[in-house]
């Protein structure tokens, strides 16, 4: 190999050259991009492809079935799907609102200076740190119809003269799921809001005080507008979490009774693993994804308008 050829090659691979620096960037992010493509994009393509096939249990490497819209036709004419959409919507609204209310309140509280603030902050974050499945099992015991703590409390406090059938009453089951999800979800909102609150300069509050603004006015005209960027992103993330959460509902109620807690994610699971209709399950999954994308775009759009 001549020196000229060797020098030419070195020159070509000289990534330090300004004109080649973008190549270095691409090379560095390539493993991450490939990884994301392998574990997210490829399964997504498979799911979309599956949703257009009439297939019970697919087999990796097996022959594809002919293109069909039957899964979507079934879906849009199915009462089950619309009920699952309604339950998901109710849960998204209740849990997101509950998590934001509790999370923002605790963040405002923990943002003040008081004795034991560190312990309070730790306690506030604790539900987030507890693994979801452990938290749900504990809640399942507390909501137990025969021996649960909540039923016992209701009797002792005189709210009820008998144990509450948390899991075998449609309304009670929905609220059992919602309460558990709010408990698990509010620390995230709280931590995000606390971070947002700490980034607001104290001068703004001092100036507002001098101008005679009340506590409510300071909250309405300083805290909320400056917190909106953080709150907007937090709302989207919470909403997506409620949309995709599976384990809380599965362990607590399994989607029942009478499908009163059957969300789109539970329906996807049931269609795939209970009824072995993987084509239909893929169709529910794809539609859930579309709904999530639309919801996120709407929320982020609203957030961007609300900043300052």
């Amino acid at each position: 190999m001549t020196d000229t050829v060797r020098a030419g090659r070195r020159k070509f691979f000289d990534l330090a050259r300004p004109s080649r620096q973008h190549l270095l960037g691409y090379i560095l992010i390539a493993p991450a991009v490939l990884m994301v493509a392998a574990i997210i994009v490829w399964p997504l393509i498979l799911a979309i492809d599956l949703s257009f096939q009439q297939v019970k249990i697919p087999r990796l490497g097996g022959a594809s079935r002919p293109f069909s819209l039957s899964n979507y036709t079934w879906l849009f004419s199915s009462e089950e799907f619309w009920l699952a959409c309604w339950v998901t919507l109710k849960l998204v609204v209740v849990v997101t609102a509950g998590s934001v209310a509790v999370g923002l309140s605790t963040a405002l509280l923990a943002n003040n200076r008081f004795r034991g603030r560190t312990v309070a902050r730790l306690g506030m974050a604790l539900p987030w740190a507890v693994p979801e499945i452990i938290a749900v099992v504990i809640f399942a015991w507390m909501f137990d119809t025969s021996f649960g703590l909540f039923g016992w409390l209701a009797i002792q406090l005189g709210f009820s003269d008998q144990m509450i059938p948390w899991v075998s009453s449609s309304t009670a089951a929905f609220w059992a799921v919602a309460i558990t999800m709010v408990w698990k979800g509010f620390p995230f909102v709280s931590i995000m809001c606390l971070a947002g609150l700490q980034s607001i300069p104290s001068d703004y509050y001092a100036a507002a005080k001098v101008d005679g603004a009340s506590v409510f006015q300071r909250f309405r005209w300083i805290t909320m507008p400056l917190l909106m960027p953080v709150l907007g992103v937090t709302l989207v993330l919470t909403l997506l979490w409620v949309f995709r959460d599976f384990s809380i509902i599965k362990v607590l109620t399994g989607g029942g009774p009478l499908r009163s807690t059957q969300t789109l994610s539970i329906m996807t699971y049931d269609q795939a693993f209970q009824y072995h209709n993987f084509g239909r399950a893929a169709a529910v999954g794809v539609l859930t994804l579309v709904i999530c994308i639309i919801a996120s775009l709407l929320m982020l759009g609203r957030r961007s308008k609300s900043i300052y």
Binding site: S168, D270, Y275
Partner: peptide
């Protein structure tokens, strides 16, 4: 069987509730 048993369970729950 899974679809059938779920239907029976739901209708029975409806009967009780």
């Amino acid at each position: 069987y899974n679809e059938f048993s779920k239907m029976i369970m739901e209708e029975t729950q409806r009967m009780i509730i």
